[in-house]
Amino acid sequence: MTKMIVVCTGDANTKFDRDYYANDHFNLARSCWEEYGMQSAEAFFPYAEADGWKSIGVYTFSSEQGVHDALASPKTQQVMDDVKNFTDAQVVLRSLFMAF
């Protein structure tokens, strides 16, 4: 099992629709990436007094290769085009985490 962590960063002026992200965007990602082994998605929303992370999305895949295949898929453009519907964050960070 491999987890892809996606972080959106911003400041107090950054738009971020938590409901849309956790429901609509995750459903879209699932429909685009299930065939590549995406099993689930979770949303976390940090609280900080200073600017920083607006959201942490944890996407669980059955394998690391599945993550790479999903991101290389033409369907990924649908997922990326949807980002504007929930945030205007300019910085998105991605990392992979896997059991060891």
Rank of each mutant, 00 (worst) to 15 (best):
V58M: 11
C32A: 15
K75A: 07
T9E: 02
V7C: 11
E35P: 07
Q77K: 01
H68K: 13
T14N: 12
E42T: 01
I56D: 07
M38C: 05
G52E: 08
A89S: 10
S55D: 09
F100I: 05
Y47P: 01
G10F: 06
V6G: 05
A22Y: 02
A89D: 03
V92Y: 02
N23P: 04
E35Y: 06
F86Q: 06
G37W: 03
T2H: 09
K84T: 12
V67W: 06
K54G: 04
F100P: 01
K15S: 11
K84P: 06
A70I: 08
M1C: 10
R30S: 13
Q90A: 10
I56R: 08
D17T: 02
L28H: 01
E35D: 09
A99D: 02
N85A: 00
G52I: 03
I56V: 14
G57N: 10
W33S: 06
D17C: 11
S55L: 12
T9C: 11
M98I: 07
A22S: 12
A43L: 06
M80T: 03
Y20G: 04
F16N: 05
D69N: 15
V6W: 01
E49S: 09
E35F: 00
M80Y: 00
A70V: 05
R30F: 12
S31V: 07
T14L: 04
T87Y: 04
N23G: 13
D69C: 12
Y36N: 02
A12Q: 09
H68T: 11
Y47W: 08
Q65N: 13
A50M: 13
S62G: 14
S62M: 14
P46V: 08
N27L: 14
Y21F: 15
W33N: 02
F26R: 00
V67C: 06
T60E: 11
L96A: 02
E42R: 03
D81M: 01
